[in-house]
Simulated scan of single mutants.
Amino acid sequence: MRPLLDLRHLQLIQAIIETGRITDAADKLGVTPSALSHRLREAERRLDVPLFTRMHKRLRKTPAAEYMAVVAERVLADLSRAEEDVRRMNAGVQHVVRLSVEAYSNYRWLPSFIRYLKAHEDGIDIQIMAGARSDPLTGVLNRHIDLAVMSGDIAQPGLASMPLFEDPLLYIMSPNHRLADRAFVEGKDIVGEHFITYTKVPEPDREFARLFRPTESYPKWAATVELPEAIVELVASDLGTSVLSNWALQTALAEGRIIGAQVTEEGITVPWVVVLRAEDMIAEDPIQRVAALLAEWCSLPNGGFHIV
């Protein structure tokens, strides 16, 4: 029987893909380049396929390496989680559920939800994985995270979702902006306005499809800033305008640093859901239990994400 790859080989594949060079990958892993080269040859011998080809002094991944990298991410994530779980068991924690929120890093709601969780479940801890917010669906599928709080309707094989709340989009501006006294804005109002967005990829039922496109009225694209909290600061300084979710803006609105107007007279409301793997959608599974409690908490009069 051909010997199997071990964790060192998986870490090697990841490191070379990330750095593109044996020397840089070796430095990242804390080994010598010669030792890493030997380990790479050993992995290729065991698999009987090349993992990398050399191109202009850099290593280029083959389809085999790309596939193994996906496997490595899952295996190493599961191992990391298992190690973390074992450490936390000594503190009375039996289960750790990893959670991320799409795009936003506003977690003012978290203490309130944790108190609610602790009142209903013992031995479950929440770990926030902020690094997964740019692509939470992949994070769930690859087991890097267990739950993703996301907007929109999620229909993807292998995933399940629970509804949390409906939330309007707001057109935000500084208090000194010419549109600051408007209850709502239409497409014609924003022509030529400096607009800051965290993505220029049009999404269905958002401002592109329902504010800009119907009237062919477009703002002037000022910048793409991936962090919504940074967008708020730029808007508050009158360096542009934006459209963001209402729930994540509560603190800045309450402080009067920005003004929010409804997007179109009818408004644009976006559903928010919690996404988990379909295989975890089992009653009393810790992941399913946290998702269900999150949905339950969002339905309470004093619960939900709209916390200042």
Rank of each mutant, 00 (worst) to 15 (best):
G152H: 02
G152M: 05
D153T: 08
D153S: 05
I154F: 00
I154R: 00
I154E: 00
A155H: 07
Q156V: 09
P157K: 07
P157H: 08
P157Y: 10
P157C: 04
G158P: 02
L159R: 03
L159M: 08
A160G: 10
A160T: 08
S161T: 03
S161G: 00
S161K: 04
M162E: 07
M162F: 09
M162A: 06
P163N: 13
P163Y: 10
F165A: 07
F165Q: 07
F165W: 12
E166T: 00
E166N: 04
E166W: 01
D167N: 15
D167F: 04
P168K: 02
P168S: 13
L169T: 00
L169R: 04
L170M: 11
Y171W: 15
Y171F: 15
Y171I: 15
Y171P: 08
Y171K: 12
I172S: 07
I172E: 07
M173D: 03
M173L: 09
S174D: 10
S174T: 13
P175K: 07
P175H: 09
P175D: 12
N176A: 13
N176T: 13
N176F: 03
H177L: 13
H177K: 11
H177S: 14
H177T: 14
R178S: 09
R178C: 08
R178G: 06
R178V: 08
L179Q: 12
L179R: 12
L179M: 14
A180Y: 13
A180R: 14
D181Y: 04
D181V: 06
D181W: 03
D181M: 04
R182Q: 11
R182W: 07
A183D: 15
A183Q: 15
F184E: 11
F184H: 15
V185H: 04
V185W: 10
V185D: 09
V185N: 02
E186W: 13
E186V: 10
G187H: 09
G187D: 07
G187P: 10
K188Q: 15
